[in-house]
């Protein structure tokens, strides 16, 4: 009996090991999100800390990442809906898009084609970008939701879960 359980446990373990690891918990909820000091497509530096006071979604993406591109339309919906809303965790909602693109032309074309309205920054260093290390990004898309003081409220929420998390901080009047 015990042996059978052991065998099945081993099979489950090795059967699922290839299907992916969870994000390592180095960027933990309740921690202060590390500063990101990157520039927008015009070369203007837009530090993450400049968004202090707002509820902010840091969205790590790239035009070469198909699921990320797909997600941009969902983010556009959230942005439009909550941009001017008041939250218990900040006044107004902003998205800080950090691209892991490698080539500026691809990045710019992506922003243009997808009609992205929010802040976009990148160092165009692909997976060699230091932010990938700082934020311990294992896979794209990846995101972090932070409050008015840059404290991490949630990470890697997508689809309905993300919308629900943001709506949860709304101040109802």
């Amino acid at each position: 009996m015990t042996r059978l359980f052991l065998i099945s446990a081993v099979i489950i373990f090795f059967g699922n090991i290839s299907t992916g690891f969870a994000q390592t918990q180095r960027i933990a909820l309740g921690d202060k999100a590390p500063e990101i000091e990157l520039s927008d497509p015009n070369g203007r530096p837009v530090p993450l800390s400049s968004l202090k006071g707002k509820l902010v979604l840091i969205d790590f993406w790239a035009t070469w990442c198909a699921p990320c591109v797909k997600e941009q339309t969902e983010l556009a919906g959230l942005y439009k809906k909550y941009k001017r809303s008041e939250f218990t965790k900040g006044k107004g909602f902003e998205i800080y898009g950090v691209s892991l693109d490698a080539k500026k032309s691809n990045w710019e074309t992506g922003i243009h084609t997808l009609n992205v309205q929010w802040i976009q920054v990148s160092d165009l260093k692909f997976w060699q970008s230091p932010v990938a290390k700082t934020y311990n990004i294992q896979e794209l898309p990846f995101n972090v939701l932070i409050d008015e003081n840059g404290i991490i409220l949630a990470k890697n929420l997508h689809g309905a879960e993300l919308g629900k998390a943001i709506a949860g901080y709304l101040i109802r009047k």
Binding site: L4, F5, I7, S8, I11, I12, G15
Partner: peptide
């Protein structure tokens, strides 16, 4: 035991 083994490991396989 056999049933448990199968239900737990078969979906993964």
């Amino acid at each position: 035991a056999i049933i448990l083994f199968l239900t737990v490991s078969l979906p993964g396989m």
